[in-house]
Design a protein around this nucleic acid. Structure first.
Length: 106
DNA sequence: GAGATGACGGGCT
DNA sequence: AAGCCCGCCATCT
């Protein structure tokens, strides 16, 4: 097997999240054998090119909330994308939130 | 090569 | 129990 760099591993795992489900930065990190690299996972996703086919919107933080504060991809956009997949978006004191107990992928 | 950064998370208060 | 603090890791400057 060809050696994959960190970004590639992250992207591969995110691609594996089925439609209508979500995952977390920490879980993605754990799946690529670097359980403490959750922060780096976020960095990798931030560096995603616009035209990428990686479903970045399915990745949330450990609390099921949207961590993004990006200008090009505001949290409203991410919430809309999740909603479009049938995921119920809860409003937790003016913050978008997803019930991980229901939507978290394995 | 050293110091800074960030779409995180766990532990302690 | 909601937040603050600090350690982690790959990258960036």
């Amino acid at each position: 097997m060809e050696v994959m760099n960190f970004y590639e591993k992250v992207y591969e795992q995110v691609q594996a999240i089925p439609r209508g489900k979500v995952s977390t930065y920490g879980l993605i990190a754990a799946k690529i054998s670097t359980p403490r690299a959750a922060r780096a996972v976020g960095f990798a996703l931030r560096r995603l090119p616009e035209d990428s086919d990686v479903p970045w919107w399915r990745v949330l933080n450990k609390s099921g909330r949207i961590s993004i504060q990006n200008m090009t991809h505001p949290s409203e956009e991410q919430a809309a994308l999740l909603k479009a997949e049938g995921i119920k978006i809860l409003a937790e004191n003016s913050q978008f939130c997803v019930d991980l107990g229901v939507y978290l992928a394995d």
